[in-house]
Amino acid sequence: MAISTVNPGLRRAAKGPRRNLAPLWLLSPAGIVLLAVLVAPIIYLVVTSFTDYDQRTLYTGAYDSVGIANYLSLFTDPDFWWSLIRTVLFTAAMVAGSIVIGTGVSHLLTRLSTVMRYVVTIVLIFAWGMPNVASSLVWKWLFQPGYGVMNWFLTQLHVFGDMTNVDWSNNAFLSYASIWMLIVWQAVPFIALTLYAAETQIPTELKEAVRLDGASEWGVYKTITLTFLKPTLLLVTILSVIWDYNVFNQIWLVSQGGPDDATSTLGVFTFTTAFVGFHLGQGAAISVVTTLILLILTVFYIRNLIRSGEDL
C-alpha cells in the first residue's frame, strides 16, 4: 500500500479553453454508463425502500408507497438486530484472525531463504486465487459429515472426541468456525503479501541500530517494524473490515445462513428477504441501512487514504 507520489507539477493544467472541455468528453461515456447501471439503481433502491414492492409487484407492477413503514418494521424486528450484531461480531472475528495471521506470515517471509519464501508465496497465491465459489465447495467437502477429511483429522487428535459424523452446518458455532477458517484462509495472502512489501521497505540499518542497543528481536519488531507498518496495517484493516462486512458467497454457499438463521449476516438477511421471501421493499430498506453503515467505514478508509498521501 505504498503511496503514489504525484509530482504536483504534472497536474499543472494548461488554461486553453479546448483543454477544459477534454475531461468532459473523456468522462462522459463512463459517466453515462455509470449513471445508468449504478447511480440510477442506487436511487431506485432508496425509492423502493419506501414501497411495499413484493412478489405481486413483480408480476403485476402494482405497488404502494408505505412511507417509512419498512424502516419502522425493520428497527422493531429482532431478526434484523440479531443479524446486525452477528455481522459486526463475525466481521470483527474474521478481521482479527486474518490480520494477526497475515502480519505473522508477513514477518515470517522476511526471515526465510529465497527458495522457501518463493514456496510460501506460491502457496499464498493459490489460496488467494481460488474463486470463492470453488473454495466454498471445497470447504463443504473438507467438512462433510462421514467423509470429510477435517472430521477425520479432528477425530484423530483425540481432543474433541469422535468428530467423524459431525455436521458442521448443523451447529451455529461450528458453522461460524468453518466459514471463519474459509474467509481467513483466503484473506491472509493479500494481507501477508501487502505487509511484506511494506516490511521490506524498512531500512535495515534502523533495526541494526536498535539491536546494537541490546533490544530483543521482539523489541525490534515492536519498536521498528510495527511502527513502520502502522499506516499500511491501518489501510489493510479498514479494507478487511469492509470486505468481511460484505461477505456473502461463502456464507450462502456453505451454510445458506443456517442453522436456524444462526449465520444469517446482513448480506444473507437481505438476500433471503428480497429473493427468497420476495419482500423487495423490505429488502431494499435493509440494503439502505447496510449501505449507510458501510459508508461510515468507507469514510474512515478514504480519510486514511488521503492521510497516507493519496491525492484524490
Partner: peptide, 12 residues
C-alpha cells in the same frame, strides 16, 4: 448411518 442424521438425500 450416523453420518446421515443431519444430511439430506442429495449430499451424498
Amino acid at each position: 448411518s450416523k453420518a446421515s442424521r443431519t444430511l439430506d438425500t442429495d449430499s451424498p
